[in-house]
């Protein structure tokens, strides 16, 4: 779906701005919104560009930065911390040879942290794009990363 189709789906309604930005970003391989798209959206919804930029910068899930094809978000909150006996974050950092906040050179993975994913009953948890993985063990994390690389998971 291109931007025009997304705008039509939302009937060019101002209050749908966040929905439009989420839809647009989800369509893109590298999960980001460009400045050009921001001005197109502002025009179409008849709102100032600054308003769209304000929304972009307020919401954590929206990004101006080109990121990886797969965005790994490791939960950083207390219930997960209390069940993380192998350190999910450093395990991934080592396996992918990147630091938290970075994107791998081949632009395949971006590694981030996230607030509680509402899966504390199955902690520790992480999210890759729209999928949540829980009850993580070191072996499970490494296997998941491999399966993404091999295209088994996507």
């Amino acid at each position: 779906m291109n931007l025009q189709k997304i705008l039509e789906k939302h009937a060019f309604q101002k209050d749908h701005l966040i929905e439009i930005l989420i839809d647009l970003q989800n369509e893109k391989t590298y999960k980001f919104v460009t400045e050009e798209e921001v001005s197109l959206i502002a025009d179409a919804l008849k709102v100032p560009v600054s308003h769209v930029c304000g929304v972009m910068s307020f919401y954590t899930l929206l990004s101006f930065d080109e990121r990886g094809k797969y965005i790994i978000q490791v939960c950083k909150d207390v219930p997960c911390y209390l069940n993380d006996d192998f350190n999910v974050l450093t395990t991934i950092e080592k396996a992918l040879d990147i630091s938290c906040g970075d994107t791998s050179k081949d632009q395949f993975f971006t590694l981030e942290q996230t607030a509680c994913l509402g899966c504390c009953d199955e902690a520790p948890a992480m999210r890759i794009n729209n999928k949540v993985y829980t009850k993580l063990t070191k072996a499970k994390v490494l296997r998941i990363l491999e399966e993404y690389k091999e295209g088994i998971l996507c």
């Binding site: 209050d15 954590t60 996230t114 607030a115």
Partner: peptide, 19 residues
């Protein structure tokens, strides 16, 4: 879109309005 404060009812209404 990833903002805890939007659970607060006034912030939530702003967000529903697209702000």
């Amino acid at each position: 879109a990833g903002a805890y404060v939007c659970g607060e009812e006034f912030a939530l209404m702003e967000s529903i309005e697209g702000k």
